[in-house]
Design a protein around this nucleic acid. Structure first.
Lengths: 142, 142
DNA sequence: CAGAATCCTTATCGATACTG
DNA sequence: CAGTATCGATAAGGATTCTG
């Protein structure tokens, strides 16, 4: 996934598929995916399942503050997009397990890169916003 | 945890900074960045500026369908986050140029990786959604 | 040219109550 | 356990008008 020639992680010359304007950008796959992972809970669910398969209430407990409704909705959407799979065990009481599909696992790769960037650079954003954030200085090394 | 045998371009063992639950996820830098780039226009603006510096109306024309209000709002937010810079030329009529900051340029790197994944895999998502999308097959049919 | 201001519609999210 | 169904609050986005 690294560029074909750039070395430092901050040169130009990426080459976003669409130069930019993008026809009906509603159909743009990039915009589509970004809006999916840009919602409030999808990434947390994906990451939680990236660790291991989990049951519904297990997810509910592992992701703090998520409401039952949003967890259900998020799971349904991710399932419809083929990013996670749902397995029902016909026991009593019913047990439902969720897990990543290969597609979902693949998505976590570029998503992790973005997450790493966010962790490494959010102090710049915080500073730009005018809010002082020095927590990152604690173990400063670079 | 997790197998170590998948062949697809998706190995496991990412290592998202936070195992998952994330304390007050409202303050999570990853969530913060994802929601920023997950909005409707930010990425288009960043990519457009990734090409070269542009004036306000130049951006307005390069990004189809964006309203004046949303372009202004998006630019202000990106500027506040330190991702783009705004330069005013005191001419008549006034000319305002926007360009990426090093921070914004750096963000485009992981963002491009995600965009590449989206372009390479959206047909899987489309298929999962039940909508047939064969545009990627290009060479066949008819 | 580059916006600010206003108004309005829609999407997102959360809380609560109920169920097989 | 694993949801569904409803309702209300808030945020995001868009159309239009006006201005230095």
């Amino acid at each position: 996934m690294s560029g074909t020639h750039t070395d430092v992680p901050s040169m130009l010359a990426y080459r976003l598929p669409a130069p930019v304007p993008a026809a009906e950008h509603a159909e743009c796959p990039v915009t589509d995916v970004l809006r999916r992972v840009g919602d409030k809970w999808s990434v947390l669910v994906l990451v939680s399942l990236g660790d291991r398969r989990r049951r519904f209430n297990e997810l509910h407990r592992s992701i703090e503050h998520i409401s039952q409704r949003m967890l259900t909705r998020t799971l349904r959407i991710l399932e419809q997009d083929g990013l996670i799979e749902r397995e029902v065990h016909p026991t009593v009481p019913p047990g439902v397990e969720y897990g990543l599909t290969p597609l979902g696992r693949g998505l976590l790769v570029p998503l992790s890169a973005l997450a790493d960037w966010a962790v490494a650079n959010h102090h710049h954003i915080e500073t730009a916003r005018g809010r002082v954030d020095r927590s990152w200085e604690a173990t400063d090394a670079r």
